[in-house]
């Protein structure tokens, strides 16, 4: 095990290479996933706020518009 970790004396260069790659790729993935989640919840909240309050047809009641809102 110690022999494996020493990488023939190059452990100090090999492991930081892999470590840095792993850290950057994981951080980029997590921030991307988190950004998507935050934006999606903002969108759902705004849709719930604006959706029912914008009637298009002048004659319709709000109940008709609600059918449009729940397709997603």
């Amino acid at each position: 095990m110690a022999e494996f970790l020493s990488m023939g004396g190059y452990g100090a260069y090999v492991w930081p290479s892999y470590g840095l790659t792993a850290v950057i790729m994981v951080v980029l993935l997590i921030t991307s996933l988190r950004g998507l989640k935050t934006t999606e919840s903002t969108f759902q909240r705004l849709k719930a706020e604006t959706g029912p309050r914008t009637p298009r047809a002048p004659s319709s009641e709000n109940t008709e518009e609600a059918a449009n809102g729940d397709e997603a």
């Binding site: 004396g9 190059y10 260069y13 090999v14 892999y18």
Partner: peptide
């Protein structure tokens, strides 16, 4: 290059 060549697989 010995074991240092393993850096190649990410580089």
């Amino acid at each position: 290059q010995g074991e240092s060549v393993r850096i190649m697989y990410v580089h």
